[in-house]
Design a protein around this nucleic acid. Structure first.
Length: 275
DNA sequence: CGTCGCTCCTGGATGC
DNA sequence: TGCATCCAGGAGCGAC
């Protein structure tokens, strides 16, 4: 599932391919994935426009165009945005194809059809509630141990669902949440307010560490994730907890357990991560 | 406002 | 072997 490190990797891989290119047009094969606001005709709105830069906010990929426009793309669970040669065979579940003036295409592929493409003015990104309500980026200078501790203080909810809440902190999904909680030795069901100051500090650092490593390893490819050139990442080989039910905890060797927390599976070690 | 449960969707796994 | 059912999960939504 594309989380912050995967979206960041897509951003970086596409940056070198499409910044400076103009859109020649597009084909939409699955209209519901496109939300172009008032500009219902996405093709008309972006044709001829040049890509000026790429950005990322949480799990949203931002493609800044000329004339104050941004394509905002969320890959959700199975989305892919891949720069391809036109003669390359079209993958199943290809929903949108952008043609570029470099002779190539940018293809949006999404098996589960949960991903979305929006077109919004660059100075009005807050039109999208997901962006408007987004919490701090984990690498924001303001995302300090002190900030994190303070934010946890009044939250009654369990720590893992809180980490997954994009309005609390941007970009964490199920995989990196489990990895960070294990590194910080915190049980996923601990009430957020119950974390001791040193635990909160440790978790804050663990979040940054696992995300940074995910980026360094170019993302976690478990099933569908590929970067903007269709390449898999390597971080799946580095995971310690996610998807490893029954396997020994890398720290204490007790079998890793899987439970449901907030309706999502949570992998943890019952010895290292006490409730 | 915080929290929770439901929903969208496909395909792989599981059950009978 | 074949068909039905369950499950994975990000985030928007409505309920309370």
């Amino acid at each position: 599932m594309p989380e912050l490190p995967e979206v960041e990797t897509v951003k970086r891989s596409l940056e070198e391919k499409i910044v400076g290119c103009r859109f020649l047009g597009l084909e939409v094969y699955m209209p519901k994935v496109v939300k172009a606001g008032e500009a219902n005709d996405l093709a008309g709105a972006i044709t001829g426009k040049r890509v000026v830069r790429m950005g990322r906010r949480g799990k949203y990929l931002l493609v800044y165009l000329e004339d104050n426009l941004v394509l905002v793309i969320h890959l959700r669970m199975t989305g892919q945005l891949v720069h391809s040669a036109p003669e390359q065979e079209m993958a199943k579940h290809t929903h949108v194809v952008f043609s570029l003036d470099n002779g190539n295409q940018l293809r949006f592929v999404d098996q589960r059809q949960f991903g979305r493409i929006y077109l919004v003015p660059a100075n009005a990104l807050e039109m999208l509630s997901g962006l408007r309500n987004m919490g701090l980026e984990p690498f924001d200078p303001g995302f300090t141990k002190e900030y994190f501790k303070k934010e946890l203080r009044n939250r009654r909810t369990k720590i893992k669902p809180l980490l997954l809440d994009q309005s609390f902190v941007a970009g964490i999904g199920n995989i990196y949440a489990d990895e960070a909680l294990h590194r910080a030795l915190i049980h996923p069901e601990r009430p957020a307010f119950s974390l001791l100051p040193r635990e909160a500090a440790k978790l804050c650092q663990a979040i940054k560490d696992v995300l940074e490593e995910g980026i360094a390893n170019r993302g976690t490819s478990i099933k569908d994730y590929v970067d903007g050139e269709g390449r898999s990442g390597e971080n799946q080989h580095m995971l310690r907890m996610y998807g490893k039910e029954g396997q020994p905890c890398p720290k204490c060797k007790k079998p890793i357990r899987r439970i449901k927390v907030g309706g999502r599976s949570a992998y943890f070690c019952a010895r290292c991560q006490k409730i």
